[in-house]
């Protein structure tokens, strides 16, 4: 059955994709939300850029990659919800009764989340450019931003699907996911430079997986190509995404026994 794994993954993802493009209101939100974040937060904290040692010319420039990662975080971290709903509505049993590779249920959902995130990241990127955010790395750099966002979303999708395999009620899953998202967000340098944080928070921010996406992304925005940093970030994110993907698959298979 291993031979069908890639095809099965694709068709599981195909379903999620069709669901995604069918949800008009959700797509409107995806377009509007980053716009609001950028305009509202950008204006709110504008004066911060005037502080000494602020690493960017405007707060908007600094925050744009932060918004990309934030939207990625929210996109990926609720991925486990679909497995909880499929279980509850009986669709999961339908998938499992088919002769598909077990692991393709997890990998298909991860792939779908990765693709959705890529589109969201591209949209935010374009909105940011339209708002006058400076981007130093050129057209190819934009692909690197989207790639980093995809990898990061796979990390969160893996975490979320792991919980989704263990938890059978969506209320519990929302509670667990919310418990993680806000601390992850505010213990990273998405919104604030490390130098503005107390020492203990800086330590946490350095190991926060978000930082591995934000730092190379921010370099692409503010200073241009930093290949070493980019490769290191991509490698760490790939490994962590793979690890959580495997964990989710293992927990999912175990939940079926």
């Amino acid at each position: 059955m291993r031979t069908t794994f890639l095809a099965d993954t694709w068709w599981v993802a195909w379903r999620e994709w069709k669901r995604f493009v069918g949800q008009k209101a959700r797509i409107v939100m995806i377009l509007v939300q980053p716009f609001i974040w950028l305009v509202l937060m950008g204006n709110m904290f504008e004066k911060m850029a005037a502080l000494p040692n602020f690493p960017a010319e405007s707060y908007l420039d600094y925050m744009a990659p932060g918004v990309v990662t934030m939207v990625t975080l929210f996109g990926g971290i609720f991925g486990g919800m679909s497995i909880v709903w499929d279980r509850r509505l009986g669709y999961l049993n339908k998938l499992l009764a088919a002769p598909i590779a077990r692991s393709s249920v997890v990998s298909g959902k991860m792939l779908a989340i990765g693709l959705q995130t890529a589109i969201q990241a591209a949209i935010i990127f374009l909105i940011a450019l339209a708002l006058g955010v400076s981007f130093k790395a050129g057209p190819l750099g934009s692909l690197a931003v989207i790639g980093l966002a995809m990898l990061l979303s796979l990390v969160f999708a893996g975490i979320s699907l792991s919980f989704g395999a263990l938890i059978t009620s969506h209320e519990t899953l929302i509670a667990v996911v919310n418990f993680f998202t806000m601390p992850l967000m505010f213990t990273s340098n998405a919104m604030l430079p490390l130098s503005f944080m107390p020492g203990w928070l800086q330590t946490i921010a350095r190991v926060n997986p978000l930082s591995y996406a934000i730092n190379p992304m921010r370099s692409l925005f503010l200073s241009g190509w930093n290949v070493g940093e980019l490769l290191q970030g991509a490698a760490v994110l790939t490994l962590v995404a793979l690890a959580f993907g495997c964990l989710a698959t293992w927990l999912f298979r175990r939940s079926l026994a």
Partner: peptide
């Protein structure tokens, strides 16, 4: 459980099912 995906069309549901059976 009447496990059909109501966010898809009838055809899409059947198409997907066919694909899952290769």
């Amino acid at each position: 459980d009447i496990a059909v995906d109501d966010a898809l069309t009838g055809e899409q549901n059947l198409f997907l099912q066919g694909r899952l059976y290769h």
